[in-house]
Computed example of a mutant assay.
Amino acid sequence: MTSFSDFPSLRFGIVADPQYAARAPHLGMNRHYAKSLAKLAEAIEVFNREDLSFVITLGDIIDRDFESFDDILPVYGSLRHDNFFLLGNHDFSVAADRLVDVAKRVGLTSPCYSFVRHGWRFIGLNGNEVSTFAPPEGHPYRDIAARRLAELRAGDAINAQEWNAMPSDEQFAWLSGQIEDAGATGERVIVMNHYPVYPPNEHDSWDRERIITLLTAHDNVAAYLSGHNHAGNFGTLDGCHFLNFKGMVDTETENTFAIVEIWADRMEVRGFGREDSRMLKLRR
């Protein structure tokens, strides 16, 4: 007799960093921007054959130019599952007068949000909120970003990079409240952001320490999913898994994407192409 525990409670698809643009490849970085349209279409074909709750792209939908959205967003039109986006640093490599239009262009009423599926709360962060590139010119967050970057550089921090960023204090308080609310209702939590925070890497969010402290302090937080570091990364701290998925834009022909399955006692990552497969125990 088959029991309910013999099946995952939910499955979802992951895409990281398609970074599409109609431009020549950067061979030195092995990035093939125009190839991402076909790679994404291939991933969606796989997703459409699966019983998934949703698919999420972890940022850097485009490499540059607002017009690039016109080419890649229609590819998602064939997806038969709910579709979610996070925004990455490259999504704001657009003309200054289009910065305020980026979130709306990909269908986001808010660049940070949460939703619940089968007792799991998924929290999507706006990792670009405090940055030198995403806020409109003259916005106070640009000044805060410049100061934070200077502090990190003074301390020789490896993530003291202009292409990193962080959520605002207000968004961090919102994240904390979301986790507390989820705990009160018996929900487990997965947090998603474009920027990784662990293991330490030059691509990490500027506030990596406070995010790590928050997530590891709550037993109901199972995982933190990110992109941005195209090489990928993985680590576990105090039972919380930190998964950095590999960038789709890298390599001329080999794809990378994943399907994540949530079971009662574990989370399984089924990697395609360059993405690694993993079996991760849940801490409660």
Rank of each mutant, 00 (worst) to 15 (best):
E209F: 01
G88H: 10
Y195L: 15
E268W: 13
D265R: 10
R64G: 03
R210H: 13
S53H: 06
G183S: 01
F172D: 02
I61T: 11
P74R: 07
G186H: 10
M166I: 03
S205D: 12
H81A: 14
L52W: 13
M1R: 14
D181L: 09
T251K: 12
L73G: 10
A41K: 14
H139I: 00
A38C: 09
D204F: 01
L125H: 04
D71E: 12
G227R: 08
V191R: 05
H218G: 00
K104N: 11
G247A: 15
I123C: 10
R274E: 08
T236M: 07
R31L: 09
A96E: 12
I259E: 08
T256Q: 11
C112Y: 12
N83S: 11
D51K: 15
F66R: 06
F69E: 07
R11Q: 14
I44T: 01
F66G: 04
N229W: 08
D82N: 14
F69S: 07
L237K: 14
E252L: 13
H218R: 15
R49W: 02
H194P: 12
P74T: 04
R274T: 01
G28A: 04
D101E: 15
L73C: 10
D250G: 01
L152D: 11
G247S: 14
D101C: 13
D250H: 11
D51T: 14
S53D: 14
A217N: 10
A21W: 11
G239A: 10
L152P: 14
A22T: 05
L87Q: 15
E268S: 15
H26Y: 08
P136H: 02
I211G: 03
S277Y: 09
Y224F: 15
H90G: 06
L79V: 05
G127Y: 06
A21G: 12
S9H: 07
L86T: 03
A34T: 04
P136N: 03
R105D: 05
L58H: 07
C112E: 06
V269N: 07
P136Y: 01
A96D: 10
N233I: 00
F69C: 08
G247M: 13
A165L: 13
A145K: 09
A222M: 13
S131I: 09
R283C: 12
